[in-house]
Nucleic acid binder design. Structure first.
Lengths: 159, 159
DNA sequence: TATTGTTATACTCTATAACTATA
DNA sequence: TATAGTTATAGAGTATAACAATA
């Protein structure tokens, strides 16, 4: 007897999917929503969002970093980065000190409170990731990382 | 000589990632954004969004389907489904015909224009998916589907 | 001219709370 | 009581356009 293949069909058995489930973007989107909504709830006590934590994380490891560099790393536009930065400054987690070498640029630093929040958020993320990937073998996990990285690095330019 | 490992580090070489790149959610989010923003541009001429197309797709394959079933399939709340449905009705792509068996429920149907838009959107999606996954082998593609499905089906309940 | 940061605005996707109508 | 749909509201993440200040 063959092992039953596990598909999204099983969620709503009477629904004809008409090959919608062969669209990769659908599955990436669903899994992304899964990760984000679960993590948002875990981070709620720290009053930060997943993306805000990622910003804190890099500012902590790179004191004085510019918004432009964060924009490049996350592959999002500068005004988008700025929105997170503004919120984090407003909440007292981040400081913006203008650079003395290039007065256009500003360097970002964590406050003590920002460092504390980041520490707690990292623990929450570690738990969250462990929980959501517990069904995967070590090999599946590393394959997933490798394939996502390949997709990311080979993506055609935006325009 | 070893093959250089390809990582996100290479995008901004001077940035210390401090193991942020070992967070799976980061990569899923980035690849998701990549897929969504590219697809949105391709669908722009048809005046539909990715999620709207997914709704049209299932309504087309399941004439008279209820919003509740779409909610279950996509794992999103009913008001969220409703928002897409309302927009699609407003744009003339969808019709809502109240059920005669259960007057609480409504059945959804495509208009001729909705069918036309869906047809063109499916072609756009096919091109888009081919382009974004062209760097993957057939085996990598099927592994990716399988692993994402595993993550999706094993996810702990929301609350 | 090019770069950095900023402001204003808008869009997509998602959620919760509270309601109506029907079963 | 429970289900189907709806309305109102809000929040997270993203984008583009346009601008000031500086290089």
């Amino acid at each position: 007897m063959a092992t039953a293949e596990i598909t999204r069909q099983s969620v709503v058995p009477d629904l004809d999917l008409d090959e919608l489930d062969s669209v990769l973007g659908l599955h990436i989107g669903t899994v992304n929503t899964l990760f984000v909504t679960r993590l948002e709830k875990r981070l709620d006590p720290m009053s930060v969002t997943p993306k805000q934590v990622a910003i804190l994380w890099l500012v902590n490891a790179n004191p004085g970093v510019k918004q432009t560099d964060l924009s490049k790393f996350f592959q999002i536009e500068r005004p988008t980065v700025h929105q997170f930065v503004r919120q984090l400054i407003k909440n007292g987690y981040l400081l913006n000190e203008p650079s003395k070498l290039d007065r256009r640029a500003g360097g970002l630093w964590l406050t003590d409170e920002g460092r504390d929040v980041l520490g707690r958020a990292r623990l929450a993320i570690a738990e969250h990731e462990t929980e959501l990937t517990s069904s995967l073998t070590a090999r599946e996990k590393s394959e997933l990382f490798r394939i996502l990285m390949k997709l990311y690095l080979s993506a055609p330019a935006k325009d």
